[in-house]
Computed example of a mutant assay.
Amino acid sequence: MTPTPGPATTAPNSRDALALAADIRSGATDPAEVLEEAVRRIERLDPGLNAVVSTRVDAARAEVAAGLPDGPLRGVPIVIKNLGTDVAGQPATDGSRLFADVVATVDSAVVRRYKAAGMVVLGTTNVPEMGKTTTTESLLYGPCRNPWDTTRSTGGSSGGSAAA
């Protein structure tokens, strides 16, 4: 079987979180520009991947506009694994239909630390139900696809994060 090229087979991004943070700190780029590029990529690539299961674009934009903490990763967008890591206002499902209606009321400790470091939380990612299988194919959100070959799995537990 010939692999099916995934939507992310376009030129890979060579800028990691540290490089983005350095560009923002130096003034070479703006946190709002970085956020908008991340939003565009989710809108363009995620329909074929199903990696991101919830977004908080308006809240992220408002946080950037209000000014971010001057932490080491100021302005770097991040998506959070939807498995025991709550983001206030976002579904806290652990990939399970049992928790389909649960919405986090507060950020978990690690999310608070990411935000204190200046990161911009953009949404949450797909996970297998309760993190219990080796593939990310929950009945709640459906399968997550590998961006390099959409006929292959992204694996379990952090499948959505891996694809993102």
Rank of each mutant, 00 (worst) to 15 (best):
L45E: 09
L45Y: 13
P47D: 02
A51P: 11
V52G: 01
V53E: 04
T55D: 04
R56C: 12
V57R: 05
D58L: 11
D58W: 10
A59H: 10
A59R: 15
A59Y: 03
A60T: 08
A60R: 01
A60F: 05
R61N: 11
R61Y: 02
A62I: 09
A62T: 13
E63W: 01
E63T: 11
E63P: 05
V64M: 04
A65F: 10
A65R: 15
A65I: 05
A66I: 01
G67Q: 06
G67E: 11
P69Q: 07
P69N: 06
D70Y: 00
G71L: 09
G71C: 06
G71R: 04
G71Q: 07
G71H: 08
P72Y: 01
P72E: 12
L73Q: 09
L73R: 13
R74S: 15
R74D: 03
G75A: 11
G75Q: 11
G75I: 09
V76A: 11
V76E: 07
V76M: 12
V76G: 10
V79Q: 01
V79C: 14
I80D: 02
I80S: 06
K81H: 02
K81W: 04
K81Q: 00
T85D: 03
T85M: 14
D86M: 13
A88I: 13
A88G: 06
G89M: 12
G89Q: 07
G89S: 10
Q90K: 01
P91L: 06
A92R: 02
A92F: 05
D94C: 13
G95F: 06
G95Y: 06
S96A: 14
S96G: 05
S96D: 02
R97S: 10
L98W: 07
A100H: 05
D101R: 14
D101P: 05
D101A: 14
D101K: 14
V102H: 14
V103W: 02
V103L: 06
T105G: 12
T105Q: 14
V106M: 10
V106N: 10
D107K: 06
D107A: 07
S108H: 09
A109I: 09
V110Y: 05
V111M: 02
V111R: 00
R112M: 07
R112H: 07
R113L: 14
Y114G: 03
K115F: 08
K115G: 10
K115Q: 15
A116Y: 09
A117T: 11
A117E: 12
A117N: 13
A117R: 12
M119T: 13
M119V: 12
V120N: 03
V121N: 01
V121A: 00
L122T: 02
L122G: 01
G123D: 03
T124M: 00
T124G: 00
T124D: 00
T125P: 09
N126P: 05
N126E: 08
V127E: 01
V127Y: 09
P128G: 04
E129N: 09
M130S: 00
M130K: 04
G131W: 08
G131R: 11
K132C: 13
K132I: 10
T133N: 06
T134G: 13
T136I: 04
T136E: 06
T136L: 07
E137G: 02
E137A: 14
L139S: 07
L139A: 14
L140K: 05
Y141K: 00
